[in-house]
């Protein structure tokens, strides 16, 4: 068994294309997941049972089942229904990319809403009261007082979830998408050199992870400027 370095060099273009797909999946589903998470959070803390109950079911389902199963249900499973095939969403849902984004977004939304809730609960009650006393309306209080602090508190947990998202994108390779893992698998299938290629892919993932962790760390520092060290 030889360790073929040149193999890695040859594969770099395909791997870079894969990285592009990985990043697309990551950013798109993280962004949409964040939006979804915020909506779910607002529904959850609304205090109205017909809004919060569905969120409990949603969170329970998406946190209690494997992401792979969620992807399969959406990609392989939805075409079973004529209603879906005839609907306006079909062009998106027919494509593996659309399905992957949908699955990752729904999954992310569940976790992110919990993370944001943690941040929200961590804001000192006294600050809410001070806002009330000053005559700020509820939406104003929420936007200018609660949110900045909740965001800062949520950053560590959110950065963990973001990294998890990065790793979850690799599952898109199971529905034919050529993200980094998908690209790696096709190369390995041709060259029978799992160590070189997969380890190269692993190293790229690690570098990306490190990169994002640094980024979040800096972001958190910036949000914590007002805290005395």
């Amino acid at each position: 068994m030889t360790f073929d370095i040149y193999l890695i060099f040859d594969s770099i273009p395909k791997m870079l294309a894969g990285m592009g797909m990985t990043l697309q999946l990551l950013f798109l589903s993280s962004f949409l997941g964040l939006v979804l998470g915020i909506i779910i959070l607002l529904m959850r803390i609304s205090g109205r049972w017909y809004l919060s109950f569905p969120t409990f079911v949603y969170i329970y389902f998406f946190r209690g089942t494997p992401i792979l199963v969620q992807i399969f249900v959406i990609y392989h499973g939805l075409p079973q229904f004529e209603a879906i095939r005839d609907s306006v969403f079909w062009p998106i849902l027919r494509e593996p990319f659309g399905c992957a984004i949908l699955a990752l977004t729904l999954n992310s939304g569940a976790y992110v809403s919990e993370i944001l809730r943690g941040g929200y609960l961590g804001v000192d009650k006294g600050l809410h009261e001070a806002g009330k006393a000053l005559g700020l309306s509820t939406p104003h209080r929420f936007i200018y007082v609660t949110t900045p602090i909740a965001v800062r508190l949520a950053i560590p947990a959110y950065s963990n979830d973001f990294i998890s998202m990065l790793k979850a994108t690799s599952l898109a390779s199971t529905i034919t998408l050529l993200d980094m893992t998908g690209a790696a698998r096709t190369i390995v299938a041709k060259t029978f050199a799992p160590y070189e290629i997969f380890i190269a892919a692993a190293i790229i993932y690690l570098v990306m992870t490190w990169f994002f962790q640094r980024g979040f760390g800096l972001f958190e520092k910036r949000m914590s400027r007002y805290i005395k060290q």
Binding site: L171, T181, L206
Partner: peptide, 10 residues
Amino acid sequence: GVPELLVILI
């Protein structure tokens, strides 16, 4: 830091 699927494949 490495995706679980990749670890299993390796």
